[in-house]
Design a protein around this nucleic acid. Structure first.
Length: 553
RNA sequence: UGGGUUAUGGUGUAACGGUAGCACUACAGAUUUUGAUUCUGUCUGUCUAGGUUCGAAUCCUGGUAACCCAACCA
């Protein structure tokens, strides 16, 4: 009895191709432009391309689409490689479109010789003018009928640097009346006297995306070139070049990109968030970048599972952030080490426990017994969470209140006898008696309580900064709202707690560790931490049935 | 009075002419030394109007809606 998981449309295409003997094995590629940081949407593409190759015994190339020297930089190359590796994938080859500049030039020459490309002296405004609109067809350029010899000479002169930026372009000679705007004699080479991050100053002409991507696929013998829906109109051109150049016929397939609630995904918008200071950096834990999720404490496993669950199809989608959070909690629940930390403290004083003494208690590190135990210091003065005490108990309140009993996690049951307020009327301390015979693990008190709360011994607590992150936007789909998307930024997306009390075991926390602060959420150490000042990021909250109870009234 | 793509619960995704399924969310309950986890259950769906067929989410025809295409960006 094996449960068959149905195939998505790209898997069906691949299985069909394999079954028909069209390919012996497949080759895919992940083709980022090194001009920015990868975001969660890219991880869908990464998981798809690498996942397909893995599933069908093929290989995947990492290819940087670096045909525009003015926007690209090695800084981005490095971060992209780091992010892919972190997600857990290995590429077979690391290629660059710029590796193929010589071949691409040769392809352009072939097109000219076949009378399928020409040099146009028009300005970009003139070219745009003659291009027409989606509803009106375009008109031929006055330079469209130059001879092969003239085009050859002109193109070589472009290459030699005889012209300034914008003076001339090389265009494919296709059809100015096509209903597909991309077929109206697309520009394939432009002049840019710019330094390229890999080829330096060798070139002053650079191929456009459409004259580089498909050919690069072909050179690498990519069998299935997978991209997002907005490239559908490019497919006709992609195939045209392959046909006219008579090169290896890679095929392009398109799927719907990932959109997610409470965030934005476009590079332009993410850039604005960084540049205008709404977040601190590209790897700010509120950013939907892979580096942002990493810094926030997400695991590669959770992101891969997420990408697996969202599926691959061709319709526009807006995935619930709660699905990503589910995948995260599913992973962290089994792996995160349980610890105690008090974020908003009030003091609990045990009046019948001897002062100036302490004992060491054992607490389990996690639900799995193999995770072992750790030591906890217990004494007569403890920090507990302010929200775990109520002056007048609400109905269904299981926590501390005058006369009520709770268990201190991994320690004793206590009963609240009284409390104290400061001048401002805020609770400053609660006084309890404890039941020595209720000690965790050897409880023979006969008492039973409904609530268990976390705590840290005042005399033994360490302190740390804790950063509580919430969703970056107040609305599900900021991009579809009226006005500017930035008007919908959540003003409370970050709350900083300068001095939380943490148990001592956290002093040896490592950047790779994942913790559950019991009852408070999942946390990890932030890279801003120093030896003297630890900083923890909240990765996610725990589900909280009590807040629902409160909302019900 | 252009072309292209897509329409299945609140969200995402299956069903390939034959029982509308799965996951997330929401809600209710059980268990719980985390109001977590786990377990059980409940609600909600085939864009629309016709047609073909014993039988239609699926095929046909006509509507409707959303998204994409007019960078020397990718």
């Amino acid at each position: 009895m094996s449960e068959e998981k149905s195939l998505h449309f790209i898997e069906e295409i691949i299985e069909g191709d394999l079954a028909a003997g069209k390919h012996q094995s497949i080759i895919t590629r992940f083709p980022p432009e090194p001009n920015g940081y990868l975001h969660i949407g890219h991880s869908k593409s990464i998981c798809l391309n690498f996942g397909l190759a893995k599933k069908y015994g093929g290989t995947t190339n990492l290819r940087f689409d670096d045909t525009n020297p003015v926007t690209e930089d090695t800084e981005y190359v490095d971060s992209i490689k780091e992010d892919i590796k972190w997600l857990g994938f290995e590429w077979s080859n690391e290629f660059y479109a710029s590796d193929y500049f010589d071949s691409l030039l040769e392809f352009a020459v072939q097109l000219i010789q076949k009378g399928l490309a020409y040099v146009d002296d028009s300005s970009s405004e003139e070219i745009a003018q003659l291009k027409g609109t989606p509803t009106e067809s375009g008109k031929d350029s006055p330079f469209r009928n130059r001879t092969v010899e003239e085009n050859m000479a002109l193109f070589m002169a472009m290459k030699e640097g005889k012209y300034k930026d914008g003076e001339k372009v090389l265009r494919a000679k296709i059809d100015m009346t096509s209903s597909n705007m991309l077929m109206r004699d697309p520009i394939i080479y432009r002049i840019k006297h710019a330094h390229h991050h890999r080829t330096g100053n060798k070139w002053c002409i650079y191929p456009m995306y459409d004259f580089a991507h498909g050919q690069s696929d072909s050179i690498e013998k990519i069998t299935h070139s997978i991209c997002t829906l907005e490239f559908i109109p490019h497919r006709e051109l992609y195939n045209w070049f392959i046909e006219k150049l008579e090169i290896y016929p890679s095929h392009q397939y398109e799927f719907a990109r990932l959109n997610m609630t409470y965030t934005v995904m476009s590079k332009r918008k993410l850039l604005q968030l960084v540049n205008e200071g709404h977040v601190t950096s590209w790897d700010d834990p509120r950013m939907p970048t892979i580096s942002g999720f990493r810094r926030k404490g997400y695991t590669p496993n959770s992101i891969r599972n997420f990408c697996d669950k969202i599926g691959v199809a061709k319709r526009e989608n807006l995935i619930d952030l709660s699905l990503l959070e589910f995948c995260l909690r599913e992973d962290l629940n089994t792996t995160a080490k349980r610890v105690m930390a008090v974020l908003d403290p009030i003091k609990l004083i045990i009046t019948n426990y001897p002062a100036n003494t302490s004992e060491i208690l054992q607490s389990e590190n996690g639900p799995d017994e193999t995770m072992g135990n750790r030591d906890l210091h217990f004494s007569n003065e403890l920090w507990i969470e302010r929200e775990d005490f109520m002056e007048e108990a609400a109905k269904k309140w299981f926590r501390l209140a005058p006369g009520a009993m709770v268990r201190l996690k991994s320690a004793y049951i206590v009963r609240c006898d009284s409390f104290e307020k400061d001048a401002a009327g805020k609770i400053s301390a609660v006084y309890c008696t404890y039941f020595p015979e209720s000690k965790s693990g050897s409880d023979n008190s006969g008492l039973s309580v409904k609530g268990t709360i976390h705590w840290v011994s005042v005399a033994h607590a360490a302190t740390a900064e804790v950063r509580l992150y919430d969703r970056l936007f107040r609305v599900e789909n900021p991009s579809s709202e009226e006005g500017d998307f930035k008007d919908y930024i959540n003003p409370h997306s970050l709350e900083i707690i300068p001095n939380a009390y943490i148990e001592q075991s956290l002093l040896s926390a490592d950047l790779n560790d994942r913790f559950q602060f019991i009852r408070k959420g999942y946390f990890c150490l932030d890279k801003d931490s120093t030896k003297d000042r630890l900083i923890f990021n909240r990765t996610a909250t725990l589900k909280d049935a009590w807040v629902k109870e409160v909302k019900k009234g």
